[in-house]
Design a protein around this nucleic acid. Structure first.
Lengths: 205, 205
DNA sequence: GACCTTCTCACCTACGTGTTAAGC
DNA sequence: TCGCTTAACACGTAGGTGAGAAGG
């Protein structure tokens, strides 16, 4: 983590690539509620998914794309009376919370031709060391994207933070508004959408 | 196709990587029956899957791995009286029948650390231009693996043919022994295994 | 007791099979 | 008619959801 930052600040030449977050409206709707992401032993996907369109790379140069989860705020968080409040001392951040996109390494051309999706990232609270990202439950995180040029002797790095994508890691949802918004938009949760939205089922209760 | 061969014969230096086919016994059982592979408009996976373990690469050099489908035998084939017989003139082979493994490009280290599977190759008889391999139905094919070094200025290529994996492309299975062997070993066809193997269901007919 | 975590579950999405009947 | 292709189908694999009960 620190090494990434140092290399970034030390990068001398080259134009920074442009990174644009997809589904920004949806992310913002979660952000205003204070977003939560489930962590499980076996790993849980994120919803929404971090997805970015990238431009400004050298089409024929080789890059790897990384997604880092930075533990921000020096607090442990607590959900009391419908609000998230900062608690006591934070737990120490796991050494590495960096996901390497499975298309890495690849040509700039590949990364730019269509948006890069991090749908397969899995968040966990246990060390199962299998490409999964270990986070501390009840701590707040911010995803950051790193573009690393590889192959050539020089490694230029660019970094892009997504404050809209901040979230608190949880083992169970706390804010039911967050749960409802997840159910509404995540196709894999459609089972719960049906029973809550169909009028004929509503009236039977 | 021709370019690949010419570059191969023109390669001057470097040790050839070692390529070993996995599940060779299973492939051979299909080969003795004359193997068939379904082609569909939307693309059909192969079964068995071409899967190879590779060694002898430079761990830090960058390679792409390609699977080519070469139309062999200058015939159109026909299944009559339980036998495949060579027919008349073949149709012209589609220009390119080369599948680039989705992990490409990657380091020699990556390709060697575990067997490389081509489970996601899809065979089709229509041009839908989406990474799918277009083949002529009722023609015979042989898969060939190409290892291409990229990044460096020189591109060394090695080629490895798999005669055990030869097959005839079909739109529907002709030899019912081939069908039975596919059902027996492909987990996705388990629905048909059940009804044919359970004795209590057999006796009811 | 209050808080947090873990596990099992029903219910989805997504898609890979050969079968079968219809089409050409 | 015959040979080959197509599309709909039932039935699997594989795995992503939050709910809810149980555990610590």
């Amino acid at each position: 983590t620190e090494a990434l930052q140092q290399q970034h600040s030390g990068a001398a030449s080259g134009v920074e690539p442009t990174v644009v977050l997809e589904d920004r409206d949806l992310w913002t709707r979660f952000q205003v509620l204070t977003n939560e992401m489930i962590v499980t032993k076996s790993g849980r996907r994120m919803f929404p998914v971090v997805k970015v369109s990238i431009s400004g790379l050298d089409p024929s140069a080789m890059y790897s794309i990384l997604l880092e989860f930075v533990q921000i705020d020096n607090h442990r968080w607590k959900y009391v009376n419908g609000e998230w409040v900062a608690g006591g001392k934070p737990e120490v951040a796991p050494s590495s919370a960096v996901y390497i996109h499975c298309d890495s390494p690849n040509f700039g051309n590949h990364w730019m031709k269509e948006p890069v999706s991090f749908a397969k990232v899995k968040l966990t609270n246990k060390t199962n060391g299998n490409g999964q990202i270990m986070l501390n439950s009840l701590h707040k995180y911010e995803p950051r994207l790193h573009v690393v040029q590889v192959g050539a002797e020089q490694r230029t790095i660019s970094c892009h933070a997504f404050p809209e994508c901040q979230f608190i890691a949880v083992t169970a949802y706390q804010n039911e508004e967050v749960t409802a918004l997840k159910i509404k938009h995540n196709p894999f949760a459609k089972a719960f959408l049906d029973s809550k939205e169909r009028p004929e089922l509503q009236s039977q209760r």
